[in-house]
């Protein structure tokens, strides 16, 4: 049973989110250092903190005739969207917001990034950034529908849009076990909306950083932190949706939540550099012709199971 947290716990949401994001960035630094053959020291693991320090002290940049309002709004909206999306994720057996439509809320907050990243690309009045911003929207058109169908699968399995009830419905069997296609599509979509890993097309090196090409100082910190926070929020949401929330033997529920979130983050960060960039013009075809029918079939399976069981969780 997932209960409501005391009111002051709202303060902990960004703190915990940032903590996990830092752990993910540190792990990424460690994997990169291993691949490059660099000796692993404490400094490697603390690299995200050094990066924050460097960016805080850095100077911002102003391009000529930039659209400053859109630019800054876009940059700030990315981490804000991540934090808002994370508000419905239960930690253990408490949740800060017992929204009855938590799944839809998560989807809606993630969609905010479409506007935010496009604005970040447009606002700078720079060609490479502009191309990067439009690339994100093209990528969005490809990943969004399979993601929505995956969320529908999880919601249909529990017959509820309330995240707490989705957790309860997995008491006997995790959704990741009997909805594997939805789980896999969801994880790919987490890469896509945080534009990291194989879906870093909008911020790719071929565009000299794309939407990040003209950013420095606190601006860059906002967007870079936003990406990692989005990845963390996505990984955190995978736990109640597909991995049974805080359920587990022996240990308290919040420990299980944390362990499962870290496990998903570890997989995402490990696989991040192992695939080439998947470009939207190639991916759109695969997403619409393969992934959407796949997730629709998955949703059909789920709804048939739910029908035959008469609403009792599997």
């Amino acid at each position: 049973m997932v209960a409501s947290a005391p009111p002051w716990a709202v303060v902990l949401v960004p703190v915990i989110l940032a903590g996990f994001a830092f752990a993910a960035a540190a792990a990424d630094g460690i994997f990169t250092a291993r691949a490059a053959g660099v000796r692993l020291t404490g400094a490697v693991a603390a690299a995200p903190l050094a990066e924050v320090a460097r960016l805080l002290a850095g100077q911002r940049r102003a391009t000529p005739a930039a659209d400053r309002v859109l630019w800054r709004s876009g940059l700030i909206a990315v981490p804000v969207a991540a934090a808002l999306a994370a508000v419905v994720i239960p930690f253990g057996s408490v949740t800060v917001s017992r929204m009855s439509v938590g799944v839809v809320w998560f989807n809606a907050m993630e969609v905010l990034t479409w506007a935010a990243v496009w604005m970040a690309g447009w606002g700078a009045n720079a060609t490479l950034g502009l191309v990067g911003g439009y690339r994100f929207v093209a990528q969005g058109l490809a990943y969004q529908l399979p993601l929505m169908f995956a969320l529908i699968c999880a919601a249909a399995g529990a017959q509820s849009l309330n995240v707490a009830q989705v957790v309860t419905a997995q008491a006997h069997l995790w959704f990741a076990v009997w909805m594997p296609a939805a789980f896999a599509v969801y994880l790919a979509a987490v890469y896509a909306f945080s534009f990291l890993g194989p879906f870093s097309y909008p911020a790719g090196r071929d565009l000299a950083g794309g939407v990040m090409a003209e950013l420095s100082g606190p601006d860059r910190l906002m967007l870079q932190a936003g990406r990692w926070l989005l990845l963390t929020a996505g990984a955190g949401m995978a736990v109640p949706l597909f991995l049974g929330g805080g359920a587990g033997p022996l240990l308290p529920t919040w420990v299980w939540s944390a362990v499962k979130t870290l496990a998903v983050l570890a997989v995402l960060v490990w696989a991040r550099r192992r695939l080439p960039t998947i470009r939207a013009d190639r991916y759109a075809e695969v997403a619409w012709v393969v992934l959407i029918p796949l997730t629709i079939v998955q949703a059909l399976v789920v709804s048939l199971v739910v029908l035959t069981r008469g609403g009792v969780p599997l």
Binding site: V38, R61, A208, M212, S216
Partner: peptide
């Protein structure tokens, strides 16, 4: 750079 573990900046904005 690889030996020291220093990242290569893709654009001047990211460079120190």
């Amino acid at each position: 750079l690889r030996r020291r573990g220093w990242p290569a900046a893709p654009s001047p904005a990211d460079a120190d």
